[in-house]
């Protein structure tokens, strides 16, 4: 019975009010404080941590996780889950690589080299397509999200392996004579010293934030994640919203796939394996509720930074990768625990 889940914050006597609000502040801003603590600790432990070059490297990593996590957050807000994003990242990277190698049209006997912008558009289109399949399965065929996206996790990975025969595309730089150079720009260039990947993340985040807070779609998403039946009776097109979030998540994964293969100037079929779990972790650390209906862009970004900066920090101070896994796991569990403290109390009175 939910009625009995009274939290200490709820029952705190009135006299402890100031203490209560500090706890509240810490709870609300926990991802932010965690990030500060992480940066402070690692700067103390290693002189190499708090350097400009290291921050740039770390933000490049965060950009990938952040893009995946933003898409994942939309799905989680809807009360679903998207396990396929890591595979979609791999698949779209390979697909981009495949296009960059040139598409041979056998009947005409020519090899087409699409320009980079076309590669980008088609790759994002592929991500959207995988998301569409997920969404339709979930919304119209009532396949549980966990199962449907688990299926596409395997299918997308399998297709990526088939496309390359398990090998890696290395030649992604294009050729001046073919007029398809510029793929590396996404991963290597900087704008005012900021890596393009990070700028892409920022743009996606701003758009997502605007959509969530200021558009009808955002309101539809929050309401259908919070109570689908009530949302539907209020005229929210719940099925369309559900399909859209998976499409958007697929598109985010494709963008991440482009950025990653550009950063590496190669596209391997196994890229992004288990990244879906990192993305889920970032969303949860950012304070979203896996039950749906609660979560913010700001929180998710912070979550991505916490996870990224923590794991890179552990690498820098030379902790064994086994311990890294243990630490990351502990952070996730701690975050979810705080989530249930924060949201548990609000159920009173239902």
């Amino acid at each position: 019975m939910s009625e009995t889940t009274t939290t200490s914050a709820e029952t705190a006597p009135a006299g402890k009010k100031s203490g209560f609000s500090i706890v509240h502040l810490l709870l609300e801003g926990r991802a932010f404080f965690a990030l500060i603590a992480i940066i402070a600790t690692f700067s103390f432990l290693s002189p190499n941590y708090a350097t400009v070059s290291n921050f740039l490297i770390m933000s490049n990593h965060v950009a990938i996780f952040g893009l995946l996590a933003l898409g994942m957050m939309l799905v989680i807000l809807n009360g679903g889950i998207d396990l396929s994003v890591g595979s979609v990242l791999g698949l779209t990277g390979v697909f981009a690589g495949f296009l960059m190698q040139g598409v041979e049209i056998q009947s005409a006997g020519v090899i087409l080299y699409p320009p980079v912008w076309a590669v980008v558009v088609m790759t994002i289109g592929l991500g959207a397509f995988v998301g569409l399949c997920n969404g339709v399965l979930i919304a119209y065929f009532r396949v549980p999200a966990f199962v449907a996206t688990l299926g596409s996790l395997y299918v997308a990975r399998g297709v990526a392996l088939l496309m390359t025969n398990g090998l890696t595309f290395n030649n992604l730089r294009g050729d001046v004579s073919l007029d398809n150079t510029g793929f590396g720009w996404l991963g290597f260039n900087r704008l005012f010293g900021v890596p393009i990947g990070v700028i892409v993340l920022a743009i996606v985040a701003i758009v997502a934030g605007l959509v969530l807070s200021r558009t009808a779609f955002g309101r539809w998403l929050y309401s259908s994640g919070g109570n689908e039946r009530a949302a539907e009776l209020s005229g929210v097109p719940v099925k369309r919203v559900q399909v859209s979030v998976y499409v958007l998540s697929g598109m985010c994964a494709a963008i991440a796939g482009l950025v990653l293969s550009s950063q590496l100037t190669s596209a391997g079929p196994t890229a992004g394996t288990t990244y879906e779990l990192t993305a889920i972790a970032a969303v949860v650390v950012g304070g979203a509720s896996l039950m749906g209906g609660r979560g913010t862009v700001r929180g998710t970004l912070l979550g991505a930074f916490v996870i990224g900066f923590l794991s890179d920090g552990l690498v820098i101070i030379g902790v064994s990768s086994y311990w890294q896994t243990v630490f990351t796991g502990a952070v996730i569990v701690l975050a979810v625990m705080l989530n249930s403290i924060q949201y548990g109390g609000r159920r009173i009175g239902r």
């Binding site: 009808a216 929050y222 109570n227 039946r229 009530a230 209020s234 749906g292 209906g293 159920r347």
Partner: peptide, 19 residues
């Protein structure tokens, strides 16, 4: 079950059908 979205505020519940 059918009327309210528990995760949203009073105001957002009130405006939900007239977005």
């Amino acid at each position: 079950r059918d009327g309210l979205v528990q995760t949203m505020s009073v105001g957002r519940n009130l405006s939900l059908a007239s977005i």
